[in-house]
Write a protein that binds this DNA or RNA. Structure first.
Lengths: 170, 170
DNA sequence: CCAAGCAGTCTGGTCACAAGACCGATACTG
DNA sequence: CAGTATCGGTCTTGTGACCAGACTGCTTGG
């Protein structure tokens, strides 16, 4: 969060965490990685972020051990590490908080524990087995009523069908 | 998050949530409110934030229904609404994520469910009753080993003793 | 009335971000 | 092999956010 004062602070790990994931776009990037997005160009198209900022964010995520970077042919692949995957409950928590307490004009995307086939509750827990499932065991489905105006990048298109988290998209 | 593009996006409540709480300092302010901090000057001293930014953040938090503002005598009091309190699990989640996955040089502050007298686990759940307690039912205690250099504002001093969340501090 | 404390607002300089041009490395194509 | 497309960046320029600190205006106590 390198903006002058970087939350240097009293015994607080919230400040530490925000130095890594508190910058603009970072959580959105991680959300997409949870969906299974792995390529620079896909993130670019899906997020409407500037190239420079995306490159910088990916750098700090790799540096801090939330993503790995690897070359496969002409593409570069970004993948979540264990630390990165561990942020999923937080991301999900923010999402369902927003859905519950903020006015919005679009219906919510749904998330389901695949092994129990039950939709997650507000805190990301599966009502059937009572546990908070790993990202890998979650499937996401588009909202029930589709929004009128929809994005048109490859990632958005792929996510119009049910999709297992972390599996490659598009 | 009013920086040009404000995450205007496909069916995603994460973007919506980040527009409200994704800006620099916002989550730190809410954390302090969870601790029970209620006055402008206390936040100012505890966070080392600029006055202008603090005023702006408090404005948007009040506007979005996370805090209420009221005058009591010469002071102004900020208090968490239901929506604001509902963010506690997310804040706690980020904190324990940071504690688990980020290197740091200081020991963690502890949080305990008062009715069960048990320390919360990573996901903010009480291992005894198995539920995620409300903020109001949580007590925070300073880290076991005190850090060498410590802050010296009223809030920091108050939090050197065990403290029930949401009860006034300092 | 005066002084003090609190909660802001104002100002000037610095830094981050947006948008888009440009660059280099790696394939594919003829 | 040269030419070209694609991908993943870097560079540049303008705009807006943030920081530090001075200043203001309201409320209360003496």
């Amino acid at each position: 969060m390198a903006l002058g004062n970087d939350y240097r602070e009293q015994n607080c790990f919230l400040a530490r965490a925000l130095e890594v994931v508190g910058e603009r776009w970072t959580l959105m990037i991680l959300r997409d990685c949870c969906y299974g997005v792995r390529h620079f160009s896909d993130l670019l198209a899906h997020l409407d972020i500037s190239r420079a900022v995306l490159a910088e964010r990916l750098d700090t995520l790799v540096d801090n051990g939330l993503l790995t970077r690897s070359r496969t042919g002409r593409q570069v692949e970004y993948q979540l590490t264990v630390a990165g995957k561990a942020l999923w409950p937080t991301i999900f928590g923010l999402m369902s908080w927003g859905q519950k307490y903020l006015p919005a004009d679009h219906p919510p995307r749904r998330f389901r524990h695949v092994t129990c086939a039950a939709d997650l509750d507000d805190s990301g827990r599966c009502p059937d087995c009572g546990r908070v499932p790993e990202v890998a065991d979650v499937e996401t489905r588009p909202a029930v009523r589709r929004r009128a105006i929809d994005r048109d990048d490859p990632v958005a298109k792929a996510l119009r069908e049910p999709h297992r988290m972390l599996t490659p998209v598009p």
